[in-house]
Design a protein around this nucleic acid. Sequence first.
DNA 1: CGCTGTCTTGAAAGGACTCAACGCCGGTGG
DNA 2: CCACCGGCGTTGAGTCCTTTCAAGACAGCG
Lengths: 241, 241
Amino acid sequence: MFYPLVRRLEQHGPLSEEEKQVLQRITSRTVLYQPREDIVREGSTPSYSSLILSGFGIRYNHSPDGRRQITAFHVPGDFADLHSFLLNPIDDGVAALTACTVAQVPHSDLKEITKNYPYLTRLLWLITLIDGAVHRVWMTTLGRMDARERLAHFFCELRDRLQPVGLSNDDSYELPITQQELGDAFGTSTVHINRVLQDLRSDGLITSRGKTLIINDLRRLQEQAQYAPGYLHLYQRIERD
Amino acid sequence: MFYPLVRRLEQHGPLSEEEKQVLQRITSRTVLYQPREDIVREGSTPSYSSLILSGFGIRYNHSPDGRRQITAFHVPGDFADLHSFLLNPIDDGVAALTACTVAQVPHSDLKEITKNYPYLTRLLWLITLIDGAVHRVWMTTLGRMDARERLAHFFCELRDRLQPVGLSNDDSYELPITQQELGDAFGTSTVHINRVLQDLRSDGLITSRGKTLIINDLRRLQEQAQYAPGYLHLYQRIERD
DNA sequence: CGCTGTCTTGAAAGGACTCAACGCCGGTGG
DNA sequence: CCACCGGCGTTGAGTCCTTTCAAGACAGCG
């Protein structure tokens, strides 16, 4: 049996047997979602947080007049709405891009953890802080880079996030994201995403066949994207005492 | 004596006498910063987090080639880099816009709180989560709104954030932010900020005299900005048990 | 009084958008 | 087994928002 939350938190600090058991217990309730299905509705007040075990998801915001902004792409191992533990009603929604299996972690269990497991609490807190760090970098790409740089940056980011969960090999990975969704994430129209992708392809930086993305020239892609992976804090360590 | 952190956290749940004393103790070390001075350097690893007691600050990111994105404006009562408690080195910097008095809260004290005061821990965690919620809305304005809407949105947001700390009266407040800084925050050039401001002024939505901003028609400003203040979670309540 | 940072203005260029149409493909139903 | 359908990707043309570059006006400060 595979315990994604254990694996994820262990990236940031060692876990005791007891702690591992706690994490296994609170992630034992799992649910299956269909592609496009809502996992958490915008504005709702869930009593649990959703941990993605398999599949791809998105987090999104709608402006009152209906324009959509995708604020995060989620891969297996991501806690899509850990923030709904303390923040409710939540103002963003979570949806499945592909079929997803999701563990529903009751907020009551999270509260118990804050009472009895300060170290686990800090680890969970850290996960939400990394989320914020990624948000800030996305803000920087949205505000200060052009569409081409933003896309290149994202492809670099996704590669580094998929690696730890074994979903990226040889710099290629499954990318089940439509051009419309890319547009909604990176602040451009679908049409423009299409043209930028063609650009990246014709420059030999990437290849995309169907839903597979191949990075042909990682160095150059990272360079043009001004990509520096530190903000992902993949190996941020926390001390127990 | 005035304890900004107590006041801030009390917005989200009642505090016991003991808890108040803890908060007072950990915010007792204060420092004064000059305008433009760095409060936290980008990429550094501070051993304390900075709580702004008076003055305005910004948080910012630089892309490797030097373009700057301002990711947050901070007002009195804001914990500018509470996330540096667990996230280090931090990838964003904090700087003073005006003269600032700042309380430096040692990370060791924060760690003690996570061990002994789970309720305070959740309150502090909440603050960082609200930060994230604001980030997401900024992403939405950056990605999906034009410069005029973004500025209007920000003026509405700042009004609602200054109200609780008594810095906004009659829908007017001090705005010690240059057009260059507004540009760096909202993803446009300084020149364009200037033109958009003139637009908002000539439409009778705002008046700005020197560093004072007056909102002349709040309804219409909020409407055009599609402003919905829920994301600030100003009165988000958390339960003790 | 002069300096420097900030604000303002104009003109030309460019990145991105909208609208519209078309091709491709997989899925569905007859 | 084939025809239809809808979602997705692609393309072109015209338009608009925003940028860049440059220069001048203004204001606060030493």
